[in-house]
């Protein structure tokens, strides 16, 4: 019981995830700045931002449903934290692995997006409503290629558990090369999930101010921000577990591997963000359905054929 509590609250739960997410936010911002020939923020900047937001007054719009408005950020954070428990960190095994946890994690990661949508919708502000609608429209476009790209390696490994997939590819490291197209699809699609340029339409600052979050302030906004930062960690950890299965037997070394792997993924994601312009919503739909989805389908077919050949 005490151990479970420790796992949920401290490691690898809320506290570790929060600290790692702040570190990730710093790394992301610093790298983004250095890519633009700027100096970038000091290491404590995300923490300072978080603390400052916690101290600010929280304003709830008059027309908003108070209970829903307040509970949505917490809900988003809770979903992300729960998802993290099923992602392997120090070894191939996660804390509570079971057959099918890949699907559970993917669905848990959809909850924050739905929270953004509901948060924007319940804000009853024009900008937030448009942002909310965009978030939902975007969800339908990137979710399909992302799911398919994540499931393709699972088909090859013949298991629906993340730990199983990790273990399988750790045994046959050459098989990862087959999954490279799926890796690329997942990287691009998760830019949509994380709402980063070029797919940051729901919060496009210069168009709809900050979209979904326009009415959120103070503590609630801090929690939302934290949920977004944590989502970045969880998604990169998930991609690292599935597509970069390099593990060590020693848990400390394994933990180091985890950090290296996720940072590599973050660097790639940051490079994506720095080198593109934001696309329009209809361009994003076109791109996801016409390019990413077919690519993911081809990957699944390839993996099925390989599976058949191996059997």
């Amino acid at each position: 019981m005490l151990m479970a509590l420790f796992n949920i609250v401290i490691f690898p739960g809320l506290l570790f995830l929060g600290i790692y997410a702040l570190f990730f936010a710093f790394l992301d911002r610093k790298l983004y700045a250095r890519l633009q020939n700027r100096v970038g923020p000091p290491w404590f900047q995300p923490l300072a931002d978080f603390c400052k937001l916690l101290g600010k007054e929280t304003i709830i719009p008059q027309g908003a449903d108070r209970r829903v408005f307040v509970s949505l950020p917490v809900f988003a954070l809770a979903a992300v934290t729960t998802a993290f428990i099923y992602v392997p960190i120090w070894s191939v095994n996660s804390l509570f692995p079971f057959e099918g946890d890949l699907i559970v994690v993917l669905y848990l990661l959809t909850i924050p997006t739905l929270c953004f949508f509901l948060g924007g919708w319940y804000s009853t502000s024009l900008y937030a409503t448009i942002g909310a609608v965009r978030a939902l429209t975007q969800l339908f476009s990137y979710e399909v290629p992302l799911f398919m790209a994540m499931l393709a390696p699972a088909i090859l490994a013949e298991t629906w558990s993340i730990s199983g997939i990790s273990a399988y590819y750790a045994e046959h490291p050459l098989y990862i090369l087959i999954n490279i197209p799926a890796f690329l699809v997942a990287m691009v699609a998760c830019q949509g999930k994380l709402e980063r340029v070029p797919f940051d339409l729901p919060e496009a600052e210069t168009e709809i101010v900050s979209g979904t979050f326009v009415e959120y302030s103070g503590r609630l906004f801090a929690i939302f921000k934290m949920a977004i930062d944590c989502e970045l960690v969880v998604v990169s950890a998930l991609i690292a577990a599935i597509f970069l299965p390099f593990h060590a037997a020693n848990p400390w070394l394994g933990f180091l591997y985890f950090i290296i792997k996720t940072v590599i993924i973050l660097i790639l994601l940051c490079l994506f963000r720095a080198s593109m312009a934001r696309v329009r919503i209809e361009q994003m739909l076109m791109f996801c359905w016409k390019i990413l989805t077919p690519l993911a389908i081809i990957q699944i077919i390839i993996n099925l054929l390989v599976r058949g050949a191996l059997a």
Binding site: R34, L35, R38, G40, F272
Partner: peptide, 22 residues
């Protein structure tokens, strides 16, 4: 193609920032 500026930006990661910290 997309992401054309990536190489140019990556070169600058290792260069001195243009910012003067007042």
């Amino acid at each position: 193609g997309p992401g054309k500026i990536a190489g140019f930006a990556l070169e600058h990661v290792f260069k001195k920032p243009a910012t003067i910290q007042y």
